[in-house]
Simulated scan of single mutants.
Amino acid sequence: MARKALIYREIKRQKLEQKYYLIRRSLKKKIKKTRFLNKKWEICKKLQSLPRNSAPTRLHKRCFLTGRPRANYRDFGLSGHILREMVYMCLLPGTTRSSW
């Protein structure tokens, strides 16, 4: 189980990302449309003045149950070892155990 502080920090980042999403998107469109380098620099400064944690690249997917940050499967939102346990207990429909 991940520490609670790390999970809450990730939730805070998600909220910030949603808050600044439209602003960030509009600034990036302006950068692509402008031809003059000076104006691009001004827009880049505005983009850099936004909070660092509002960038979508700083988000990290976590396991829905345990909060584990690694080995997550997008389809289920679970980490690998939790997914394996649930498959073995037949809790996930449509999945099968591997047998060699």
Rank of each mutant, 00 (worst) to 15 (best):
L65M: 03
S54L: 06
A55R: 13
F36C: 01
R70M: 07
L37C: 01
I43C: 00
K46F: 06
E42A: 08
N38A: 05
A55E: 13
E42T: 06
I43F: 03
R70H: 11
R52I: 13
R68T: 13
S49A: 12
I43W: 00
L50N: 05
F64M: 11
K46H: 04
K32F: 15
P69Q: 05
R62G: 01
R68E: 15
A55H: 13
K61P: 13
R70I: 09
W41K: 06
F64T: 13
C63G: 11
P51G: 03
F64L: 11
I43Q: 00
K30G: 12
H60G: 06
A55N: 14
C63Q: 04
R35S: 09
L37V: 07
K33P: 04
K39N: 04
G67A: 02
C44M: 09
L37R: 03
L50A: 01
Q48M: 08
R68H: 14
I43A: 01
N38M: 02
F36A: 05
K45I: 11
N38D: 07
L47W: 04
R70P: 00
K30C: 09
G67M: 05
T57V: 14
R52G: 07
R62C: 07
K46V: 01
K30R: 15
F64A: 12
K46G: 01
R62M: 06
K45G: 02
N38T: 10
S49G: 07
L65N: 05
H60P: 07
L47S: 00
K30Y: 11
K33T: 04
K40F: 05
K40Y: 03
S54C: 10
R35Q: 11
P69R: 03
Q48D: 14
C63I: 00
P56Q: 08
P69D: 01
R68L: 12
L65I: 15
L50H: 04
K33R: 15
T34D: 03
R58T: 15
L47F: 05
L59P: 06
P69Y: 04
W41A: 09
I43R: 00
F64Y: 11
S49L: 04
F36R: 00
K29V: 15
T34N: 06
S54D: 06
R62K: 07
R52C: 08
K45Q: 08
A71E: 07
K46Q: 12
A71T: 09
K61M: 14
R35F: 08
I43N: 00
S49R: 11
T34M: 07
P56L: 06
K32T: 11
K39S: 09
C44E: 08
N38W: 10
C44D: 03
K46I: 09
N38V: 10
K33Q: 13
I43G: 00
L47E: 04
R70A: 11
K29R: 15
K39L: 12
F36W: 03
K30T: 10
L59Q: 05
H60K: 13
R58I: 15
T57M: 10
K40R: 09
L65S: 01
R68P: 01
R68S: 13
P51D: 02
K29P: 08
K30H: 08
L59D: 03
W41M: 05
K45L: 11
R58P: 02
